[in-house]
């Protein structure tokens, strides 16, 4: 490095429009690479440094906080139309480090690292003592509720048989005793009415995803299930853009306890590996 050309970063306000543009590019990157769980939205920009980049451009080194929305990542609803998950619903936040390159007025992500975590039980209880907390996704009641709900949905369906992709979140409600679950599904090449062996059904080449919300209520001598599924338009599987830098890492959805690692057989490989991991 020639003497006299010390590397200096530009100090920018966290709420500067240029910083915000870089942060929004980062959030867009998160949502386009997370193929499990929920879309996240920008909550706060914690830190920013803008480094000159040779031979041209600038690199925005960002620390940002995000919040989980109610839109599943497979839901094509634009982020702007997605609601933030409220504290009483047991909110989930993301802490992210990014390096975003600005070159010729365009932002592109060089490096991304995010961890997500649910709000503390104490915080939820302080605001809403009776509100249900997030439940472990492998809880037997949760697994049972998803199974019953998906079976009920397929039984009512005149179209494709839908297979479970992931359980996205769950809450055990004390009164009335019930289990609330949200889960993602995908259409198969079987007709729901004709399925005898679901294991023989394959996901469609042109993926069709759905997102379901269900409540299983325990009753004396049985249980009631209410399930609503939204089926999205078919989505051709496109190659995902990869980070440009050698140090780029994938956003790891497994960091979020509310987002399970999916069944390996059910999810396309592209949704399990979203980028080089260092």
């Amino acid at each position: 490095i020639p003497l006299g050309t010390a590397l200096t970063y530009r100090q920018l306000n966290c709420d500067d429009p240029e910083t915000e543009q870089a942060a929004l590019a980062a959030v867009d990157y998160i949502n386009s690479h997370m193929l499990q769980g929920y879309k996240h939205t920008l909550n706060q920009i914690d830190k920013v440094k803008v480094w000159p980049r040779r031979p041209m451009g600038e690199v925005f080194e960002l620390e940002i906080d995000t919040l989980e929305t109610t839109c599943h990542v497979l839901d094509p609803t634009p982020l702007a139309n997605c609601s933030v998950r409220q504290l009483v619903e047991h909110a989930v936040e993301g802490d992210c480090d990014f390096q975003v390159l600005k070159q010729d007025g365009q932002f592109s992500v060089l490096f991304a690292k995010c961890d997500s975590s649910p709000d503390s039980a104490e915080d939820v209880r302080r605001l809403c003592p009776g509100c249900p907390l997030l439940a472990p996704l492998n809880d037997t009641k949760v697994v049972h509720a998803v199974d019953v709900a998906l079976t009920a949905f397929n039984a009512q369906s005149n179209g494709s048989y839908f297979r479970l992709l992931e359980v996205s979140r769950a809450q055990l409600v004390p009164l009335p005793p019930s289990t609330y679950v949200e889960f993602a599904v995908a259409a198969t090449d079987c007709a729901a009415k004709d399925v005898t062996d679901p294991a023989k059904c394959n996901l469609l080449a042109e993926k069709q995803y759905g997102f379901c919300k269900a409540t299983l209520t325990e009753k004396v001598g049985g249980e009631d299930v209410a399930v609503t599924c939204t089926v999205f338009q078919t989505q051709p599987l496109l190659p995902q853009p990869q980070p440009e830098g050698p140090d780029a890492v994938a956003v790891d959805p497994r960091a979020d306890p509310a987002v399970p690692v999916p069944s390996q057989a059910d999810v396309p490989v592209a949704s399990l590996v979203v980028g080089p991991v260092v």
């Binding site: 590397l7 200096t8 306000n13 966290c14 709420d15 939205t41 706060q44 830190k47 933030v84 909110a91």
Partner: peptide, 27 residues
């Protein structure tokens, strides 16, 4: 004379630009 190459930053102590505003709520 040995000069330490590296970062030369002179932040304005009066400037407190970060963190930025909270858009929703703090978790």
């Amino acid at each position: 004379t040995v000069v330490q190459p590296g970062i030369a930053v002179v932040p304005d102590p009066a400037l407190r630009p970060c963190p930025g505003r909270i858009r929703y709520f703090k978790v």
